[in-house]
Design a protein around this nucleic acid. Sequence first.
DNA 1: GATGAATGAGGCTTCATTCAT
DNA 2: GATGAATGAAGCCTCATTCAT
Lengths: 208, 208, 208, 208
Amino acid sequence: MPKSSDSDHKKTTVSAPERREELLAIAAQVFAAQGYNATTVRKIADAAGMLAGSLYYHFDSKESMLDEILSGFLDELWARYDAVLGAGLGPRETLEALVTESFREIDRHLDAVAIYQKESKHLGTQPHFAYLVESQQKFEKAWLGTLERGVAAKVFRPDLDVRLTYRFVRDTVWVAASWYRPGGRHSPEEIARQYLSMVLEGIALHDS
Amino acid sequence: MPKSSDSDHKKTTVSAPERREELLAIAAQVFAAQGYNATTVRKIADAAGMLAGSLYYHFDSKESMLDEILSGFLDELWARYDAVLGAGLGPRETLEALVTESFREIDRHLDAVAIYQKESKHLGTQPHFAYLVESQQKFEKAWLGTLERGVAAKVFRPDLDVRLTYRFVRDTVWVAASWYRPGGRHSPEEIARQYLSMVLEGIALHDS
Amino acid sequence: MPKSSDSDHKKTTVSAPERREELLAIAAQVFAAQGYNATTVRKIADAAGMLAGSLYYHFDSKESMLDEILSGFLDELWARYDAVLGAGLGPRETLEALVTESFREIDRHLDAVAIYQKESKHLGTQPHFAYLVESQQKFEKAWLGTLERGVAAKVFRPDLDVRLTYRFVRDTVWVAASWYRPGGRHSPEEIARQYLSMVLEGIALHDS
Amino acid sequence: MPKSSDSDHKKTTVSAPERREELLAIAAQVFAAQGYNATTVRKIADAAGMLAGSLYYHFDSKESMLDEILSGFLDELWARYDAVLGAGLGPRETLEALVTESFREIDRHLDAVAIYQKESKHLGTQPHFAYLVESQQKFEKAWLGTLERGVAAKVFRPDLDVRLTYRFVRDTVWVAASWYRPGGRHSPEEIARQYLSMVLEGIALHDS
DNA sequence: GATGAATGAGGCTTCATTCAT
DNA sequence: GATGAATGAAGCCTCATTCAT
């Protein structure tokens, strides 16, 4: 879980919360579009209509912006996931709910998800971003557990390679952030439905 | 299709082809591991046991290495894809063959695929990398066409949103590059089989 | 001959030893003249006839230059001091030798001494420069011990406040770095003699 | 003599004199502890419990604070020195009085003295701080004159190198600002006595 | 084929300062 | 008297690239 209270940081980093949020949204957009490394602080500032140095009144560093974006996203994601996991649903319903919440999160935090997809892997090596790794482990446990429960309950096919399936499902969901556009043709729920239909029933037509 | 022959390069950049290949493989590895932007020429040189400047005897620029890696990968990929697409197979068999070839390509050119995944989107905007966009369009045509043929032939479900399905399938295949390790537990063919089984039949268990 | 032992250091920082020495001497001069903080990397580079960035081929950072200057100076100083302290001299002779060696060191490493004087106090708080504090403690022990030995041996006046005297003596010696010019009217040995005469005999004229 | 009245300052910079004094004392403390260059306006403001920008209501600039601190200190110092020099004392008594007043000044204005010690040399080059150089010249004249008078009057040893002695004495007195702590074991007068005893009589024990 | 040294552009960050409120 | 937000210059450092040897 990310940072909490911060007592004696150089820059108290408070400022009006709305302005911060605004700036973070802008930063997230640029990060998502160009990649974190390729994004210069000046590009963010340009997009915000200020000078590069002025960003440092609000944030400690370029990295701290990234940090705030990612941890904010994960915090919210886990609030939803935990609600689902604690609801006592069956494995199939859990899977459906997780997938649906995931697409909703993509809808809400598209940029953060896109950044997470592109950067989390190599960020995970930095101690400051250890929470990304932790989150990913919780993630794996939640999804793997659901699949295993489903196999045990004879809701999912017994011949599944659960780990492989987990990876397929996980990646396909999140990678949707690379093409999804909020307000487009499909609502997140619609995409979730289509996706679940494919994963659960397959795309082949069965003459039954 | 990408660059052809080095016609007007300042530095004739000949050097033994094997050494080039070696160095490209090293570069691809570092690019894949750290991202293109975050990879410094010095890191590549370090990994190759030489000094940064020395790389410029073999290559014109850092970008030209990336270019060579990506175009080499795409050239090979399309040779395989074209063979499949020209073989006169039915839609389901075509899908199976494309998926299988894709996983094989991941097995052979893991680093290139990983780089392609991470960088192709923003590289596509640069004129020099227009071939990435072209390739992606050919790609879409091949997969979409196969899916549509399958729906028409009543091999795939009639209620599929073909574009959505295309994206799901495409992403799931390629994103495997982020976790696949050559020489690991599963052969590419095995992964392809599992994956196709999921996509074609679904993961739900049906009491028939 | 490039990198040798250092396995994964970013910059192996070897380069021709003479060039390093040259550049360090230039840096020391500028640091001494303007103060470490007020010295910009560009000023050093200007003085060396190169661009600011080029310094980073030879050194890791501005601070590492300072570090190398100071530790080089202290290493040499302690070699001389240790020789004196291990020579088995009486307290007065020890004092004379320490003072003389100190002025010689000022003559040899004027800039380093000047920097040490101005910066060591606030640098000491940084963990990286802990050796400055250690050195200063060894220093104190050597001088204090000599004074105490002298009082016990009735070579120095019994009413001395030894700590106060230590500070006076120490400061007077080192502060000379702020006005001493090598090659000027007085040789280091001459200055040492005058200084010792004052400290040992006083400046008052006694009718004996 | 330093600046006089604020004639042409943009900001009339009046504010309650006590508040100014308070803020100047805080600034002096930080300047002394960290060095002028290394002291940011924000550090001063932090120490004063306000924001950096707010200081500009009271002062024109960071430099003007330094200026006021140093000129205030020198004004007071010279008031005392002039009193001593005009009192018609003999050379030895003059020396004793100057030393004593100096240590008293260190006691009263420790921070200003410390700043003066560290910064006056390189500040002297700036036209705005020319008064530092003037002061130093007056200083030299006063001390050198006293020593020379003493030699002529056979109060000090005839073999003294007067300039060297001047430097030794001057430096040792002022450098005490680097270790002196007001309210510590020794009063300024006590330190002066010890110091004068050492300088006048020497530390060697004479069997007479 | 490779090294060593340098260039020059550009990146992140700091900081004195300003100014409307 | 003070705050909050911003400016703009400057600082340290990185890095792709060049080139004489």
